[in-house]
Design a protein around this nucleic acid. Structure first.
Lengths: 214, 214
DNA sequence: TGTACATCAGTGAACGCGCGTTCACTGATGTAC
DNA sequence: TGTACATCAGTGAACGCGCGTTCACTGATGTAC
């Protein structure tokens, strides 16, 4: 962290100090504003106060930078989900508590998508498959990725006897689909015009549906 | 339709004849291959065998062309959904028939997304809101848009006494979210690697969940 | 039926733009002696 | 503690690219007489 922090991109040293991190942060800001397409290598270097070619000391190409931004976005999503989970009181009977935890996971997911649409889209932009879903770079403070947080909540539902064990396998894809679809329709799609109250309502009803339907 | 049909872009006349349609078709082919970002004005004119500037006789700018492609993609989606609906037998009691029709709508949606991922993404690319969801340019052969087809299926569920009337309002957003989310995860997201059999299975289970949870 | 003319769809050359990427370089840093 | 040197992070100029868009034009078509 050289220079004047988040001020102008002027540096006092020839070396940057932590350019890789600075580029990921700049890229993340760009994604925040305009989604994955807005992650432009040259603009990231500009914001870091560095020549465009300097980026190639830390990333093989633009795709690699976007991949790092994608991981950062997933980590931010995980943090949002953890934050919602932390609000769930520890009292009450295990069944209602397990249900509340699943709802919290879904609420965190939807809230993040609503509050940070660009970042949310970036989180799902890089070509990843399920193997990447466990990468530590995508984890929140608790060390779990969004996908793992959801899985844990569903496991809790089984342990509490709410979800029959035989319906557990693959359940994350169903719950995930519902939340993801609503998120996409709300931020990018035909439901974009909804006001926050309507959005919250339809979110609640969606989570009801998942709870009933799983 | 001048020249040799779908052959090389050589024309024998100065006038094209139906350039607007040709550009939308070329743009749709581009979207089919690479989603909305692949709808490149210059490439569309190239495929139509025409100078780039000719496009401006028919579209104000690239966005307008993309909008037309988006409508065409939605119409194709509507046709796919209609096709699945047509398979539902007309016999049986009204309740199971209404349920089957909703499933058919969902199946058509998911099948289209799976078979035509680029077109599917293009269908939801243009900035539209719910008012556009009724535009005739997006309708299938039955004159209904995808959204309207879904709404009709849900109305049928109410009429058959399967869905309580008070839960009908807004139900399209819930069903739509579930299907849309799975579609996105399957074509663009972490579920991309699934083979067709797995994809079909998770699709069925998702529709089960919607049926149970609505 | 033939001719003059208005229309307007398509031409072709040019524009500025910003991008990702390369390459030979420079100079700050840390290490070996 | 001081000096020589290897390392390698960042420089700066340049590249080719394809894009969207503009503009004055040209020539096929259809209409009026």
């Amino acid at each position: 962290m050289t220079g004047t922090g988040t001020g102008p991109p002027k540096r006092d040293t020839y070396r940057h100090g932590d350019l890789r991190r600075a580029l990921v942060e700049a890229g993340t800001d760009l994604a925040r504003g305009g989604g994955p397409d807005a992650v432009v290598l040259r603009e990231a270097t500009r914001r870091a106060g560095v020549a465009p070619s300097a980026a190639y000391r830390h990333f093989a190409d633009r795709r690699a930078l976007l991949g790092a931004v994608c991981s950062a976005a997933q980590a931010a999503l995980a943090v949002a989900m953890e934050g919602e989970l932390a609000k769930v009181p520890n009292r009450g009977d295990p069944a209602t508590r397990a249900r509340a935890r699943l709802r919290a996971v879904g609420t965190g997911y939807l809230r993040f998508a609503w509050a940070e649409p660009g970042l949310f889209r970036a989180a799902f932009s890089a070509s990843e498959d399920l193997r990447d879903a466990a990468s530590p770079a995508r984890a929140g403070e608790g060390g779990l990725t969004p996908f793992q947080i959801l899985a844990a909540a569903l496991d809790g539902l089984v342990e509490a006897g709410v979800l029959p064990r035989e319906r557990r396998p693959g359940a994350e894809f169903l719950a995930w689909s519902a939340a993801h679809g609503l998120a996409m329709l709300l931020i990018d799609g035909p439901l974009r015009g909804l006001d926050p109250v309507q959005a919250r309502d339809v979110g609640r009803r969606l989570l009801d549906m998942v709870e009933q339907g799983l």
